[in-house]
Write a protein that binds this DNA or RNA. Structure first.
Lengths: 151, 151
DNA sequence: GTAATTTCTAAACCTAACTTGAGGTCAAGG
DNA sequence: CCTTGACCTCAAGTTAGGTTTAGAAATTAC
């Protein structure tokens, strides 16, 4: 394949470690937008490798695909993050992560305070706090603590 | 209702804050086993309030329902955890939690080290570690980091 | 004794993030 | 020309943890 023709989906999959089906799914979710060649096949830019890497990393931080889409669409021209963009975005991701860690740490401290107290059945136990528990989102499944969307 | 007849499912739901449907679902998953009255309705012991509380707390620690079922079934006579049982179980839960926190903290440290380095597209970036990413479990959805079953 | 609640079962539906499968097209090698 | 492999679309399946719904039976309240 000539250089100017871009990457086929299989090549992109091999470069990123993602499944082909996942890449197509991300496209359906509006996270990536390849063009089509004469035969109707998807062709990707080299920068899309970075874009997919970004998506994978953001997922590790607990961002949902819609959230990632928003972050990406906030960039000028909806471009793949440059190093400077990444620097800016990192600050927000770090806050997100700090929040998750804080929640879990609080949970652990409560657990330590509770070990052996035998209060398990009491509404006043710090571990037994309904407001702190996972909340329903729509009519779907519950989210584990710290994985719930912030909005 | 007479004292000896036990709690109806609605009463148990009000006491625990769980939905009636959730309690029935837990029964289907083998987490709780009520008896039936003459009319075929479920009746619960007072201790089942504690049992459900335990389930809710364990969920916050990231345990899946099958994992919780295992913990509960490990108790003598499959009884609801007593304060002493709880003390013993807590140690295991704390280890579980420590692991999740450690993973997230490592992720955060990597992020800090990466801010501004511009390496986002490189396989050698610490954030871009496939082994660290969510793994497929069966043919279903992926699990977010730290939520994956340990086994 | 009747009305209003509650409960029952079973099956269908829900979200997120994908995967799998069916049925068909496209491109390259021999 | 033919085969092989990669690609296409669209629909349905998967997992976790439940909720919703429908129609019937049991309980409770007045």
């Amino acid at each position: 394949m000539a250089i100017s023709e871009g990457l086929a989906i299989g090549a992109l999959a091999r470069r990123t470690g993602l499944a082909v089906s996942a890449i197509r799914y991300y496209e359906a979710q509006g996270l990536i937008a390849p063009w089509r060649n004469a035969g109707g096949q998807r062709r990707y830019q080299r920068a899309d490798i970075r874009r997919l890497s970004f998506i994978m990393i953001a997922q590790q931080f607990g961002l949902s695909l819609p959230e990632i889409r928003e972050v990406l669409s906030g960039l000028p021209g909806n471009r793949t993050p440059t190093p400077q963009d990444w620097k800016d975005i990192s600050v927000g991701l770090r806050a997100h992560l700090d929040k998750r860690i804080a929640t879990l740490t609080r949970l652990r401290d409560n657990l330590d305070g509770c070990i052996g107290c035998g209060c398990l059945s009491l509404p006043k136990c710090a571990l037994y706090n309904p407001d702190d528990r996972a909340k329903t989102y729509g009519s779907g499944p519950r989210y584990l603590m710290g994985d719930a969307p912030e909005a």
